[in-house]
Design a protein around this nucleic acid. Structure first.
Length: 949
RNA sequence: AGGCGCGUAGCUCAGUUGGUUAGAGCGCUACCUUGACAUGGUAGAGGUCGUUGGUUCGACUCCAAUCGCGCCUACCA
């Protein structure tokens, strides 16, 4: 074995072997099944840190359950990501100076499929690099045939039940992408703008009203001005007419208590029902009033094109829209209208004003409320059982508080606009005839058959596609074969847990719950584990524009500074930021990023996965865990060096491996490490079952480093290298050495699959374990019979003895390796026995030259002192010890003990404490006081003695 | 405006139903190239747990208020 662990030499080789041998395929036998659905990444996307984290957690759970013997499936697949993917390809076309309409629908879609073929393997390749044990044989894609059938099936069933309908309403319109988007795809951010105060003259010549607006250009579509009916200033004017400036139209003053807040602005609100959600609601309440209903289009006046420019007038509209503004972009129109109002003396004032601006999450364009025909899912009937599923505990959120977020949204949920005016996605299975009738069906043929329409009858399919999340919502059952009633569906639905970050609770989790209950009659998963977001070292969100993105693959493989710079500054939306990013990157990674390997990355994710907390990704941590890999690697080297070709007391397949072949002797160290191992197994299992990956990682780290390596390996040396030690003792030590390591590897495998497999292959045969792969070995379970409290107590004595001597040496500047003579005073029978029995451990680890027990009344010569319980461990000062240093050391320790004694005495002298605290707690304090006092007296006497010298 | 979360060592974070001297890693100091490992070993320094009150025999932990930070949801034209 190499001296240093090199992940590259092994990771990809092992992954390939696992995949080729079908180790990821769920086994067919077994009762318990365990299943996780991967949140399907964008098919043409690439892996980011969030994926890395998310998939590490899932793979850890999956590998754990697979080893536990469950019938385990991790379902892989990718998402077609409608708008996102279409935009990528449109950008490619742009580079060729083309638009999608130049190609036409079919050619454009063909082009996207080509792009998918080209880049679609990227993300699944990257998932493999992470070690994800996904069942690739059954990989699915949201637009493959099976899933498309599921989508149609769901659409048709919902339509036939009246839960999908088509309607003309205001939607969130993205004027850049020319599509409707759902409420969730609109992100509002505070921006600085203005509030324009405009005068609308009364037609009776009695003055004017002042309306305040942030969007003056929409005045062209006004149908009224609303005031609060209780507002004394305007009460008497309700019903009067105003002249809408620049248009010559007349609009009424109406009363609307619900919408108009007299305290805000001027208390007069212009009502533009086709371009504002609130105004639309006002219009719905007032549309029957004659002053509105008699207006053109009943007052519902759209003034925009799909680009959010001022539209032209239709026939019969006369000059509804003043010709002057036609064709102007909304912001140009705003400028012009403000100018014209000012010229007409109708502009009262302009104020600075902060407002929330809605933008499309993909395009960044300012979203326009726009009147269009769209398809909707009637959501309330679906939401109700989905809420109940969480209330009743059928679905549990971890951490629990996310259920509040879920309820909050589900209880206020609006109908879901599912149609998108793009080309890439599931085409809506609806056909229209020339009369405007709608036929919904699986195909045109089916529709014709069902409605007795012969082939000459003209039908055209709806141009729109479905929201990407419509197909994602079906993912937990569509991937398993639904609507067919497959074995996989029976085996794995409902799934066990969904693992995701909170940002898609609404987009995805809630919708899967609704659709799962609706179509499977059962929740899609029983638990939802919500993890935090990965941020950069400063706590900032990672983003291309900030230039602080880390690529998990770069952490695995390493990257040079030059390549990192290139990556961070190329293809930027805002190239002017490149300089700053370069500077910042050079500062943070002057030598690029070293290669840490997948296991170290995974261990880092696990170790940082405290519940419900975002992660500031700290390079120091991953470096530490790379070192941990190296530690494990080198521990193995040591073990191999000592067990290979030696008798480890392990049987053969014939004799049975676990049975010792010959007489064995287990040392204290053997019993101790076995006991500690059982407790570590317990701790790990509890942690994983409770989604505390940080605790699980910590348990392994501490056991491996602080117990197995720091103590046990060291303790094995005096046994294995001693000529006095019996063969039985050596055999016992070798057996323990190798078998503890073998267990530890299985325990660690779910988090660090590669290094554990590599090492296990070498260690397992020697440990007497057979199997092709660690992946399919049983997960270690704690054996109660090996928990040995006596050994732990005895070992604590040994450790304290050794630490005491090391502390003296450290404090006195004595080289750790220098052998020192040791005297023991105030010894009990047990002390004497232990000192005798474990002499070889003490000599080796504390480098003691001699150990002599003093007679009961002999206090020995002037010495440096350490306490082991009541026993004094003495190192004579003669020739070795710096008197002043020892005085200082003792004084410090005495001060600490004195503080402790004072504190406890005070506590115990408080009658309230003694009366009211539980007896056990009081007794504990009393014991502690007694111990501290004894130690204090002992050290004090020692100090006095040394001072007298 | 409402909701959620966070504030513990220089940094990144643990701290289970209130009860040992509040822990770990990184960083720092000193010593050590000892036959697994310098991606290492040994010893050590470093915290009045954001602040203020309260409950309690006892508070990092529970309650209230307050300051600071972050996020989510809904928004007044």
């Amino acid at each position: 074995m190499d001296k240093t662990y090199d992940p590259h030499a092994i990771e990809q080789r092992w992954y390939q072997t696992w995949e080729e041998r079908g180790y990821f395929t769920p086994k067919t036998a077994g009762d318990e099944s365990y299943c996780i659905m991967i949140p399907p990444p964008n098919v043409t996307g690439s892996l980011h840190m969030g994926h890395g984290f998310n998939n590490t957690i899932m793979d850890t759970l999956i590998r754990y359950h697979r080893m536990k013997g469950d019938k385990t499936l991790w379902q892989p697949g990718t998402d077609h990501a409608g708008i996102a993917t279409q935009m990528v390809v449109e950008r490619q076309l742009e580079a060729e100076d083309k638009k999608r309409h130049d190609l036409g629908r079919d050619a454009f879609i063909e082009r996207i499929w080509e792009w998918k073929a080209e880049s679609g393997g990227n993300i699944t390749r990257q998932l493999r690099r992470l070690g994800s044990s996904l069942d690739w044989e059954h990989e699915r894609f949201t637009m493959d045939d099976g899933l498309s059938d599921a989508v149609k099936e769901v659409f048709i069933r919902l339509y036939e039940e009246g839960l999908i309908y088509r309607g003309k309403r205001l939607v969130n319109w993205d004027p850049k992408l020319h599509t409707a988007v759902s409420d969730l795809e609109v992100l509002s951010e505070e921006e600085y703008g203005h509030m324009w105060h405009m005068r609308y003259p009364l037609t009776n010549g009695q003055g004017h009203l002042i309306v305040a607006t942030t969007r003056p250009e929409t005045m062209l579509g006004d149908c009224a001005v609303a005031v609060n009916p209780n507002d004394e200033r305007y009460k008497h004017m309700i019903g009067e007419l105003l002249e809408l400036p620049l248009t010559g139209r007349r609009i009424p003053i109406i009363a609307d208590e619900e919408h108009v807040d007299p305290e805000f602005g001027t208390g007069c609100v212009k009502i533009t029902p086709a371009h504002d959600f609130n105004d639309y609601a006002v219009w719905q309440r007032h549309r029957d009033e004659i002053n509105i209903s008699e207006q053109i289009h009943g007052g519902l006046i759209n003034i925009f094109t799909v680009d959010a420019a001022i539209r032209d007038n239709d026939e019969n509209e006369d000059e509804l829209i003043p010709t002057k503004y036609i064709g102007m972009d909304r912001y140009d129109a705003r400028k012009q209208i403000v100018t014209d109002l000012e010229a007409a003396g109708l502009l009262e004032k302009i104020e600075d004003h902060k407002l929330m601006v809605p933008r499309g999450d993909r395009s960044g364009a300012v979203i326009e409320p726009f009147l269009t025909d769209q398809w909707y899912v009637k959501i309330a009937p679906l939401a109700k059982p989905a809420i109940e599923a969480v209330e009743s505990g059928k679905i549990r959120f971890v951490p629990d508080n996310w259920k509040n977020t879920y309820y909050e949204w589900m209880r206020n949920i609006q109908d879901w606009c599912i149609s998108r005016q793009i080309w890439w996605g599931h085409r809506i299975p609806a056909w229209y005839d020339d009369e405007g009738n709608v036929y919904v069906g699986r195909s045109e043929t089916e529709v014709r058959q069902r409605h007795n329409l012969d082939d000459s009858y003209p039908l055209r399919q709806d141009e729109d596609v479905l929201d990407t999340w419509f197909s994602s919502a079906l993912w937990p059952f569509s991937t398993l074969g639904w609507p067919e009633n497959t074995e996989r569906l029976k085996d794995f639905y409902p799934t066990s847990v969904l693992v995701t970050a909170f940002d898609i609770i609404f987009f995805w989790v809630a919708r899967m719950i609704m659709m799962g209950i609706k179509f499977m009659g059962e929740v899609p998963f029983h638990e939802v584990y919500i993890h935090g977001l990965i941020r950069d070292g400063h706590g900032d969100k990672m983003s291309k524009s900030k230039g602080n993105v880390l690529d998990p693959i770069d952490l695995i493989d390493g990257i040079t500074l030059e390549d990192l710079l290139e990556k961070r500054t190329s293809g930027m939306m805002q190239p002017q930021l490149a300089k700053k990013i370069e500077k910042q990157t050079r500062k943070e990674f002057p030598d690029g990023i070293p290669s840490f390997g997948t296991d170290a990355l995974r261990f880092t994710f696990a170790a940082l996965a405290a519940t419900g907390r975002d992660i500031k990704f700290d390079l120091g941590r991953i470096e530490g865990y790379r070192n941990f890999c190296n530690k494990l690697w080198n521990a193995t080297r040591y073990v191999m060096m000592n067990v290979e070709g030696e008798d480890c007391g392990v049987g053969t397949p014939k004799t049975g491996y676990s049975q010792p072949t010959a007489e064995l002797e287990r040392s204290l160290a053997d019993r101790w490490i076995l006991s500690r191992l059982q407790k570590t197994k317990k701790a790990f299992t509890e942690a994983i079952e409770g989604y505390r990956f940080d605790h699980a990682a910590q348990a392994i780290y501490e056991f491996t480093w602080n117990e197995y390596c720091d103590w046990y390996l060291e303790l094995s040396k005096p046994v294995l290298n001693s000529e006095q030690a019996s063969e039985a003792a050596k055999r016992g030590t070798r057996r323990t050495l190798v078998r503890v390591l073998e267990s530890l590897l299985r325990l660690t495998h779910p988090i660090m699959p590669f290094i554990t497999e590599e090492i296990w292959q070498r260690v397992a045969p020697i440990a007497g374990v057979t199997g092709e792969t660690i992946m399919h070995q049983p997960f270690p379970t704690a054996r109660q019979s090996l928990i040995d409290e006596d050994a732990e107590t005895e070992m604590a004595w040994v450790m304290q003895f050794i630490l005491g001597i090391r502390q003296i040496k450290g404090g006195m500047n004595i080289a750790p390796g220098k052998p020192v003579p040791v005297l023991l005073a105030n010894t009990s029978e047990t002390d004497k026995e232990l000192a005798q029995k474990h002499r070889h451990f003490l000599d080796f680890l504390a480098r003691t030259e001699s150990i002599e027990v003093l007679a009961p009344d002999d206090h020995g010569p002037e010495s440096a002192t350490a306490l082991v319980g009541e026993m004094k461990v003495l190192i004579p000062l003669a020739g070795l010890i710096d008197k002043d240093a020892e005085i200082k050391r003792l004084e410090k320790e005495i001060a600490r003990l004195q503080g402790e004694v004072d504190r406890i005495e005070k506590k115990l002298s408080n009658p309230n404490f003694v009366d009211k605290a539980p007896e056990a707690v009081v007794q504990k304090e009393r014991d502690k006081l007694a111990d501290s006092k004894k130690a204090l007296e002992s050290l004090q006497a020692q100090l006095d003695k040394i001072r007298q010298l």
